[in-house]
Design a protein around this nucleic acid. Structure first.
Lengths: 140, 140
DNA sequence: CTACTACTTCAAGTGAACTTGAGGTCAACA
DNA sequence: TGTTGACCTCAAGTTCACTTGAAGTAGTAG
């Protein structure tokens, strides 16, 4: 497969694939002239990368999850830790979602006057945003 | 209150407060010599900003949630939309967390050989992490 | 009065994850 | 054989949300 095939099958732009290769996240198996050739299993690898990204791992962390030969080798400790972290994140997001939903329905003239919103506010104030895990807005 | 008071009470560095002011997210009420003076209600405002950040709004989006006079004016539609978005995010994170937890326990020699992990992989592949840059601009 | 310190401005730097542009190559098709 | 178009490299640019640094100012403690 050449880079265009991988791009269309994975939905990622070729520039991203080249970037991922440079970062050591994927590998091309050879060249046809100038052109990179990819083994079809790169798609599985890209899926794994997407999984990691969605779970909030940085590209560097993800790169560290592969052994030298390219087989995934994810540290179980790390998985547990990340799962726990996700758990905390989820709890926060659930509170946030409920708060937003309430605010959207709330009859109080201003959200600031709604006790529930105020509680939410205090909760948010106590939890300043850290370096955000990859929950980037996707409005489709 | 001078900027140091606001900083210590909010937990945000002064540089961030100046940056927020520059971005139109907060306002100082005057000066004492060179020094900014803040009304204590800036703390409530900062809490609101933290709330928005936690919910995944960009600073620009948050800035748009205030009326000219500085009172919050949050669009209910937007809240619903954001809550729904959070919901989708949460569902993904839950799947991710369960997947990670499973992977950490799974006896399969490689995660890639585990059917459950494979399902997770396919799910992640269907939901590539989207770029956020243009999307947030579109909201303004 | 002097020193100290917390503030001030403005410009530039940071880091993550890419994207864009310029200039070049080359396999395949007509 | 020539043209096309998809690929190539490398450097630089982009976005977001800040942070850092240099150089300057001014209220306050001693």
């Amino acid at each position: 497969m050449d880079i265009g095939d991988v791009a269309s099958r994975s939905g990622l732009p070729a520039s991203t694939l080249r970037y991922y290769e440079e970062r050591g996240l994927i590998r091309s198996t050879g060249r046809h002239g100038l052109r990179r050739l990819f083994d079809p299993n790169v798609l599985e690898r890209l899926a794994l990368i997407a999984l990691g990204r969605n779970a909030g791992f940085s590209l560097d962390e993800i790169a560290g999850m592969f052994t030298a030969d390219g087989r995934p080798q994810i540290d179980r400790e790390q998985l547990f830790a990340k799962a726990d972290e996700l758990d905390r994140n989820i709890k926060q997001l659930v509170a946030m979602r409920d708060g937003l939903r309430h605010a959207a329905n709330c009859p109080a003239p201003s959200h600031l006057e709604c006790p529930k919103f105020q509680r939410l506010l205090r909760a948010a104030a106590n939890k300043p945003v850290k370096r955000r895990t990859k929950l980037t807005a996707k409005l489709q």
